[in-house]
């Protein structure tokens, strides 16, 4: 298969950056999208040019490191998978493929297609954890948890923090990510203890970092490789309201 690639090239965070056009030929339909970029990079290196920088790690759809905005969609044309799971057979021979980095104010471009997603770590550091003393292993059945709640919490916890929700959102909002992280704890008894502080701190950090607001367009849900539901956003909204109204103190930072 032959393709024309339009790839965002940016030397470093301070450079302006622009699209470069590359032609690539004899690509197997069974080649993964990232393998196709590997082949391109080998050709670029052989020609003495700078290879295209892009994020990747496990290449098994688990880690959430790969992050390409392909023809207007984060993680490419398929639903519920990450970029590394996209194969070239999903494209037509001769297609032009536009590859861009995630675009959001808090996600600055480091180089080419790699963005700094450190903002997500900062949100987690603001409250996305539970404070427990270490000690002996507690009995697994000591705290009864409804299956339904456990399932919902697990669904929320499946978020891999790839940032596709932010990339897809027309407002570059991180609501789905934050909501998933708030929900996974809010649904379980261990997480309830710090629930009121957690939601306020994480939302405040999200705002501070410059993510946009939610318009309930649900592009995040549509593009999430883990199909995390926007019901979690509603839960976060409820949690936040409860914390603001029922909490003893307002937490701004």
């Amino acid at each position: 298969m032959n393709f024309t690639l339009k790839i965002w090239r940016q030397k470093d965070a301070k450079s302006k950056g622009k699209f470069e056009k590359y032609s690539i030929s004899d690509i197997s339909p069974d080649c993964s999208f990232l393998e196709m970029l590997d082949i391109l990079n080998e050709q670029l290196v052989a020609r003495g040019e700078e290879p295209v920088a892009f994020d990747h790690d496990c290449r098994e759809g688990i880690c959430g490191t790969c992050s390409l905005y392909i023809n207007g969609r984060p993680h490419g044309p398929d639903d519920a998978i990450t970029t590394c799971q996209v194969h070239m057979r999903r494209f037509k021979d001769g297609d032009t493929i536009v590859i861009e980095p995630w675009r959001a104010k808090p996600f600055s471009v480091i180089k080419d297609l790699i963005v700094n997603r450190n903002a997500f770590d900062k949100i987690i550091q603001a409250g996305g954890f539970i404070s427990v003393d270490t000690g002996g292993i507690p009995d697994a059945n000591a705290i009864p948890i409804r299956k339904e709640k456990a399932d919902q919490s697990m669904d929320a916890a499946s978020c891999i923090g790839c940032g596709a929700c932010v990339a897809a959102c027309k407002n570059a909002s991180a609501m789905l990510f934050v909501a998933a992280k708030v929900s996974q704890f809010a649904l379980l008894p261990q997480g309830r203890i710090e629930a009121k502080e957690r939601v306020q701190k994480m939302v405040a950090k999200m705002d501070e970092l410059g993510f946009g607001n939610c318009t309930n367009t649900y592009a995040c849900e549509a593009e999430c490789p883990k199909e995390i539901s926007v019901e979690h956003i509603a839960r976060m909204n409820r949690e936040f309201f409860g914390a603001k109204v029922g909490g003893r103190k307002n937490i701004k930072k």
Binding site: K6, A104, P106, A172, F211, E223
Partner: peptide
Amino acid sequence: HNWMSRPKRYKVEGWSHTSPFSKFM
């Protein structure tokens, strides 16, 4: 604020399966 959250826009704008009305509020 939403516009400011994405200072550099995409070359190919997103076309996720979502309510079209929500995008033009």
